[in-house]
Design a protein around this nucleic acid. Structure first.
Lengths: 146, 146
DNA sequence: ACCAAGACGAGAGTCGTTATCATCTCTCGC
DNA sequence: GCGAGAGATGATAACGACTCTCGTCTTGGT
């Protein structure tokens, strides 16, 4: 779950390797994502960067996120509230999923090997070359249930 | 995967049990869902009902779907394209998930016991009372890969 | 420093979804 | 069956997330 501290460098290097230039918006979005490694919406990123003095446009945020997703540097996450969220994807293939509490809206990450194995089995059985998957568990957290 | 042929009756009965009335829009949406048991968007339902001579408003479709989801008669599914889809949820607890082909957009349902067990294990470990979960597998189907 | 390609920001536009409100209809008590 | 009121419906306006467009600015190579 820990995003390597080298992630922003890795991401910027990958952008360059892809033949893309280094612009202010890209740097700002990458830096912001690196500081908040779980589930940031485009709006949150936009506001966050602005709060730190940057002047990125919301369009640029979406553009940068699009690029990062295409390069598999960022994973898009949909929690069912109509807002796409984004988080850095680690290069070592280790990733996590999310539980959402219907009561308080709290989001918590988790990872589970049995789950990953089951998904690989399913993909193989169906003749799919799985290159991504998303799991969202919904329920009531212990405090909301009390 | 097979939706019981009794689903529409079950759904209408559940609506009544919840103290709700039987209006034309509810019957039309339930009937349409029963005929297409996998992944229908609100727009598709609206168009489908209209094509059959009904006169439901799009607002009513969303309202009815909202009600059905709240009563757990219908499951909301997000495949990542910004459109919410809906399908009947069987009363016996048996449900399915979806694989989406990034190449041709084909959607296929699947179900897997190991996956369900893994999810239950995760929820228990986190202290969550899981009452729903959604899994989307993304990849290339065998024809798109060839 | 110059220049072309590319990146950027602002704002308009698109589209799925939700809220509003006046009208209609179902259900219950008579 | 009938009337009344609560609830359901449909058209439309409003909303919000996201995308497109376009003119300007920056980057990186020369």
């Amino acid at each position: 779950m820990i995003v390597s501290t080298a992630w922003p460098d890795h991401a910027l290097a990958a952008l360059r390797d892809a033949g893309l230039r280094s612009g202010g918006a890209r740097r700002a979005v990458v830096a912001h994502l690196a500081r908040h490694d779980c589930c940031r919406s485009a709006q949150e990123i936009h506001d966050g960067v602005r709060a730190e003095g940057g002047t990125v446009g919301i369009a640029s945020v979406y553009r940068v996120l699009d690029t990062l997703v295409a390069l598999r540097l960022v994973q898009r996450v949909e929690l069912g509230d109509g807002v796409a969220r984004f988080e850095p994807s680690t290069s070592d293939g280790h990733h996590h999923h999310h539980v959402v509490c219907d009561g308080c809206g709290k989001v918590e990450p988790f990872s589970d090997n049995a789950l990953e194995h089951a998904l690989e089995g399913v993909a193989g059985r169906l003749g799919f070359a799985m290159d991504a998957h998303e799991v969202v568990v919904r329920g009531a957290c212990d405090t909301c249930r009390a």
